[in-house]
Computed example of a mutant assay.
Amino acid sequence: MSGTVSVKELVDEITNLEVHSGKEYLEERLITTEDISRPGLELTGYFDYYPEERIQLFGMTEISYGNKMSAKKRLEIMNKLCGANTPCFVVSRYLAVPEEMTAAANKHHIPILRSKLPTTRVSAKLTDFLSGRLAQRKSLHGVLVDIYGLGVLITGDSGVGKSETALDLIKRGHRLIADDRVEVHQQDEQTVIGEAPRILRHLLEIRGVGIIDVMNLFGAGAVRSKTDISLIINLENWERDKQFDRLGNGEQKVTIFDVDIPKISIPVKVGRNLAIIIEAAAMNYRAKTMGYDATKAFERNLNELISENSDKK
């Protein structure tokens, strides 16, 4: 994990979050971890291992327990919960915020946020957002396209035709995520997310034409903000002496962070319709993930034919 996120960014990006108090402190309070804390032991007075750097989430359990305290004890506990690095308090289910929490938070310049969602859903939304924003990132050269809901990263040397192929795919109804530079981060043990840098969002560069705005030309349905990267297709200039996989049984992998992503190499030659080939490759990969492998079916048919011919002899 790396970087920080301000509480203001959290409020701006996550729906169903409203500011109860401390609006003036949103930009100065920074979040450095995706972990969320529900202060249980702390409400009993145990602060030996208090994770003050985390967002402090209050649900029905925490609020109900706090309401059983005296006002003096409640204020004491709330002041202890206001650590120097505590980014904010979040109260779920639109529960009433105790006056002592508001007083302590204002004293220590800590915002209080509220949500109508149940506590577990608030926690999940916060964690998903923070894991993406705080994750280690890297930039890859390529074009990322959504093909039938499958994130396909098209790579290859400069000038091989990646952007032109992406334009053909967009015209066939698929969606652009990023052109030229793709920012990627690992979401979990099996998922890598790709998106466009802010400056390149919705833009596509076509040699001889220049930069085009895909959303403006083709509509909102032609773009997408981000997607999982499920398949990498590498475009390579065709060479007579170079061997390419013809049966689809030479599986390649590319490791991005800790995730292995399947890779297919496609030769680029004059007259080949790369958009249709990539579209077919994506559909074929999806069929494999659903249990049907055309290569294995061919091998099975071939073995049956050999067996039949052997029996006739």
Results as ranks from 00 to 15, higher is better:
residue 254 V to Y: 15
residue 241 D to N: 14
residue 283 M to T: 14
residue 183 E to Y: 05
residue 18 E to Q: 14
residue 277 I to C: 07
residue 69 M to Q: 09
residue 187 Q to D: 07
residue 259 V to H: 01
residue 89 F to I: 01
residue 31 I to T: 06
residue 189 E to D: 15
residue 143 V to K: 00
residue 60 M to R: 09
residue 151 G to Q: 00
residue 279 E to T: 03
residue 199 I to H: 10
residue 257 F to W: 02
residue 25 Y to L: 06
residue 239 E to K: 15
residue 155 T to P: 06
residue 89 F to S: 03
residue 47 F to S: 02
residue 248 G to R: 03
residue 83 G to R: 04
residue 135 A to E: 02
residue 31 I to N: 05
residue 66 G to H: 04
residue 42 E to N: 08
residue 223 V to L: 01
residue 231 L to E: 04
residue 263 K to D: 01
residue 79 N to I: 09
residue 138 K to Y: 07
residue 245 D to N: 07
residue 73 K to H: 14
residue 50 Y to T: 03
residue 34 E to M: 09
residue 15 T to R: 12
residue 262 P to C: 08
residue 172 R to M: 11
residue 221 G to A: 11
residue 277 I to G: 05
residue 22 G to Y: 04
residue 104 A to N: 05
residue 188 D to K: 06
residue 183 E to T: 11
residue 47 F to N: 02
residue 262 P to G: 10
residue 235 L to N: 04
residue 91 V to R: 01
residue 53 E to V: 08
residue 86 T to C: 04
residue 94 Y to I: 07
residue 9 E to C: 01
residue 300 R to T: 10
residue 119 T to A: 08
residue 4 T to P: 00
residue 12 D to A: 08
residue 272 R to T: 14
residue 148 Y to A: 12
residue 109 H to G: 03
residue 21 S to I: 08
residue 39 P to A: 06
residue 208 G to K: 02
residue 260 D to V: 02
residue 72 K to N: 14
residue 241 D to K: 13
residue 99 E to I: 13
residue 313 K to I: 08
residue 10 L to V: 01
residue 268 V to Y: 03
residue 236 E to F: 04
residue 195 E to F: 13
residue 268 V to S: 05
residue 296 K to P: 08
residue 64 S to Y: 13
residue 232 I to L: 12
residue 11 V to I: 01
residue 168 D to T: 05
residue 192 V to Y: 03
residue 140 L to Y: 12
residue 87 P to R: 01
residue 288 K to G: 06
residue 132 G to I: 09
residue 295 T to Q: 14
residue 296 K to Q: 14
residue 305 L to V: 11
residue 304 E to I: 11
residue 7 V to Y: 06
residue 249 N to Y: 11
residue 106 N to T: 04
residue 269 K to Y: 12
residue 36 I to D: 02
residue 35 D to S: 14
residue 257 F to V: 00
residue 122 V to M: 02
residue 300 R to D: 08
residue 107 K to N: 12
residue 275 A to H: 03
residue 148 Y to W: 11
residue 110 I to H: 04
residue 171 K to P: 00
residue 68 K to H: 15
